[in-house]
């Protein structure tokens, strides 16, 4: 009986289901996870290394590594512009403006749309939502040629306005679909309570519903920004030089002038990845859901 065995034995028996045991199967599983981890991170590591290599090392078949940060300077300098005929800093700025514009349009139009879609069912409301999502199914290539013609005719080719307009097509469905589920999770009785407190529907929406989906808005805006930022095909075809974006600018180092600068490409790509990364880190804390906890019964 246990009593006679003393406290050490009693402690050893504390192992309950859910606690970790080391078994051959668990070792295999851990190794598999490790392998996947290496596989998925390797391209990133390669990129960082490449961006830090000088011109001589980058094409060598042996691993030679004498790190330099000169590539970043080159990309942002006049020399970079000479090599590619694109001002990389300007392209960054354009990208930020394009994406911010697209996200802004999506939020201003999308939040009320998501609220309406989440709160009211009407004939065809589901079809409408599905149609909006279906913009995301079709390959962009399918519409790019007519868009090119339309943009030329309207005179918005190679303008920021044109880019905001086309990127908004990418971000709007995202914003509406994400926020709709946030609004649906919110008890309609909160707004009903506000109505009975004497507030109009508009004020009930603005003062009760909207503050409660703030985390959702942050998450949707961030995702939309990243999707817009990463878009390549639209700026490639619909811009030339005045409104060109980071994604296009990066690829210019891969042979625009006849020679491919792999190390400069890598450096440009890393620089181009910075803004979304910084943005994600700054608004991370708003992404935590749970503000609405305690509003309605558990």
């Amino acid at each position: 009986m246990l009593r006679e065995r003393g406290p050490e034995v009693a402690l050893a028996r504390e192992l309950t289901p859910g606690q970790k045991r080391v078994t051959p199967a668990s070792v295999v599983a851990d190794l598999a996870i490790l392998a996947w981890f290496v596989f998925s991170l390797f391209p990133l590591v390669w990129m960082v290394l490449l961006a830090l290599k000088n011109d001589a090392d980058q094409t060598s078949t042996y691993f030679r590594f004498s790190p330099t940060t000169a590539n970043f300077g080159t990309v942002l300098s006049q020399r970079g512009q000479d090599l590619t005929s694109v001002d990389f800093g300007q392209a960054m700025l354009t990208s930020v403006l394009n994406c911010a514009g697209a996200v802004l349009v999506s939020l201003v139009v999308g939040i009320p749309a998501a609220y309406a879609a989440g709160r009211w069912k009407f004939k065809g409301s589901e079809d409408l939502m599905f149609q909006m999502l279906s913009f995301r199914f079709a390959p962009e290539l399918m519409v790019i040629v007519p868009l090119f013609v339309i943009y030329n005719t309207l005179g918005v080719f190679d303008t920021k306005l044109g880019m905001v307009w086309v990127l908004q097509l990418v971000t709007m469905p995202l914003v509406v679909w994400i926020l709709r589920s946030y609004f649906q999770d919110l008890s309609p009785e909160l707004e009903q309570a506000a109505l009975l407190d004497g507030y109009t529907r508009r004020r009930a929406f603005l003062t009760v519903a909207l503050p409660l989906v703030r985390p959702g808005i942050a998450a949707a805006a961030l995702l939309a920004f990243i999707f817009a930022w990463n878009n390549y095909l639209f700026p490639l075809i619909l811009t030339d030089s005045a409104a060109t974006t980071v994604t296009v600018a990066v690829t210019k180092y891969l042979g625009g002038g006849g020679q491919a600068y792999y190390n400069l490409t890598a450096a440009a790509a890393l620089l181009g990845a910075l803004p979304p990364l910084v943005l994600a880190l700054t608004i991370q804390r708003y992404l935590v859901r749970g503000l609405s906890f305690g509003a309605v019964k558990a």
């Binding site: 009903q192 309570a193 109505l195 529907r201 009760v208 906890f293 305690g294 509003a295």
Partner: peptide, 20 residues
Amino acid sequence: VEPYHRNVAMAFESYALYPQ
């Protein structure tokens, strides 16, 4: 007549307290 013009007060089963 809109709810805010009816001058009625309601306690909801779910409480519906404003969480923020």
